[in-house]
Simulated assay, not measured.
Amino acid sequence: MPISMADVAAHAGVSAQTVSRVVNGSPRVDPGTRARVEAAMAALGYRMHRAARALRTGRTRTIGLVVSSLAAVGNSRMLEAVAEVAAQRDYALAVVTLAGARSVGDAFAQLRDQGVDGAIVLNEATTLLRGSDPRATLPLVVVDSPPDDRFAIVQTDHAAGAAVAVGHLLSKGHATVHHVAGPSGSFAARERERGWRAALEDAAARVPAVVRGDWTSRSGFAAASGLAGATAVFVANDQMALGALRAFAEAGRRIPEDIAVVGFDDVVDAAQYRPPLTTVRQAFDALGTRAVATLVAMIEEGAGPSFTALPGQLVVRESSGPGPL
């Protein structure tokens, strides 16, 4: 039989009303009693039925996540991180992809139909969000967005990470660094391009023409054909870098002896590329933790919009090396 509040109350030596207050987050419980009730709940395996809790509190403890597509590694890594942190906080997760919705408005309508308490919007989906205003009914946290006081924003400092990658390559003696950029509609891609350009300009180095891809390894392979004279290239994500590495190898260009390559993201397999890929690590776990924590604070405490930028970290491996002799 399911464990009831009465069972928890008897185990903890408190009233059922006290257990109810703990379950519903009431401040009218002293810390010692709260700890005793929570210990009893854990010992008995008690879980509050979401529908019953929603009737009591007006909240479903469900958060929504809107994403353009899960094909990109960054989006899937963020989904994984958000799902893990939401579960730790006892929130369910409802996911809507824009591929399965007619518009961003339709995506939010689907989430409202599921009774979510708030939502997180990822990456490319944020561009479409700027043309709508679902804030009247949903607290929102946006991952990767230009400044916007309508929403809370959590992001990696893409421009700074890109500048570090370029500085690393210039320090190896390369005269300049070429760039394989992501889609022009992506905020992250634009910021990484901005950081690349600023680092070259600060070093008084030539700024080559940008070659653009679509985040896929196939587009990275195609982009490499436009980099015949390059000795160093900063690629806007690791998937495109994988394609570029293959293209350079097939063209007989040794890495890093003939051309050095740096990516962005530090995907799980980046250390297994041939050669292992130097890249800028995004802290996806930290981004997911911060995004969920920010949203929960908006839902439970009425916190207002905020801005958080987390630094990237350069991870040096074999694909970046000295410039040509």
Rank of each mutant, 00 (worst) to 15 (best):
A125E: 09
V67P: 10
M78T: 05
F108C: 02
N75R: 03
R130A: 12
A125C: 11
G74V: 02
T62R: 02
L79Y: 01
Q88D: 15
A94E: 09
V95R: 05
A81Y: 01
S103P: 01
A72P: 07
D106Q: 01
N123C: 13
G115K: 07
D133G: 04
A72I: 02
A94G: 09
Y91S: 13
T126M: 10
A125K: 08
A81P: 04
A83R: 07
V67C: 10
V116L: 06
A94F: 07
T57F: 01
A72D: 04
A72N: 05
V121T: 11
A125D: 08
Y91M: 10
L129R: 01
G58Y: 05
L93K: 04
A101G: 06
V85Q: 15
G118L: 14
R89E: 05
T97D: 03
R59D: 11
I63N: 09
V73N: 13
V121Y: 06
T57Q: 06
V85F: 12
A72F: 00
V104Y: 11
A81W: 00
V85Y: 13
V116N: 05
T57W: 03
V116R: 04
M78C: 10
S103I: 04
T57M: 02
G105R: 10
R89S: 06
A109K: 12
L79P: 08
Q110N: 05
A101F: 10
V73E: 12
A99P: 10
R59E: 09
N123K: 04
A107T: 03
V82M: 06
T97V: 01
D90G: 10
D106L: 01
A109M: 12
R89A: 07
T97W: 02
V66T: 09
R77S: 15
S68G: 14
L129P: 00
L111A: 15
T60H: 08
V73T: 14
A109I: 06
A92H: 00
L98K: 08
T127H: 15
D117V: 14
R77C: 14
D113S: 15
A81D: 04
G115A: 09
G105Y: 08
T60Y: 09
L98D: 06
R59N: 10
V82S: 07
L70Q: 02
A107G: 00
Q110A: 11
D113N: 13
S69F: 03
G105N: 10
R77G: 14
L93G: 02
L65C: 03
V116K: 04
A92R: 02
D117E: 10
P134F: 13
D117M: 09
G118P: 09
E124V: 08
G74F: 00
A99E: 14
A72E: 01
L98V: 03
T97Q: 03
R112W: 09
N75T: 08
A119M: 03
